[in-house]
Amino acid sequence: MAQRVRPTVLAAERVVPVSGMLEGLLPGGGLQRGSVTALDGPPGRGVTSLALHLIAATTAAGEWAAFIDLDGSVGGLAAAEAGAALDRTAVVRGVPPDRWAAVTASLVDGLTMVVAEVPSRCRASDARRLTARVRERDAVLVVTGAWPVEAALTLRAMGGAVTGAVGGEVDGGWSGLTPEGGLLEQRCLCVAIEHRGATRTVALAG
């Protein structure tokens, strides 16, 4: 009976709202629950920062998040600077490749958002099984690295220096540190958002 009288849930209500610098840029206003988002991009160009911002947006809404950190190097201070609630953020380290799928599935069962670095030899069958699990649990799985199947949404971090972005040319990248002196201050990060075949590029002021 409870099943039958349960109110209808619209797709727009099944979204983890994303605030901060990504606000208003993602399709639907946030990350769709029950879907897989892929983060992509060459190393050093802001993939980790983007992942930490997604964690920050989720934990700020009172949800729980986990980060599967394969080489044990994610910076806790950077997570705090991005605005993550550290007491609701778990970082899982030392995951052997053969247990990666089991660990990720366990985390998806209980946490709203799981950011997982994918080991290099992730099987497509594991990936499909995880996708089904995520849909069933209404969680959000964010994968970085070589995800062998298609994801609902792809965010590609491209550092600075991209032409033809929305709003004209962007001379992105780090500011503050110049050959004349100074220190790193902030970064203008270019992100390409791929959703249902369409791609658009936006610049995020960090």
Partner: peptide, 24 residues
């Protein structure tokens, strides 16, 4: 509760030190 259970299960799989949380 759900999050705590899931994290405890992963600790059971990998050992308690594998699941950590940062403190500044």
């Amino acid at each position: 509760d759900r999050a705590a259970r899931a994290l405890a299960r992963v600790q059971g799989l990998l050992g308690p030190g594998a699941v950590t949380t940062p403190v500044l």
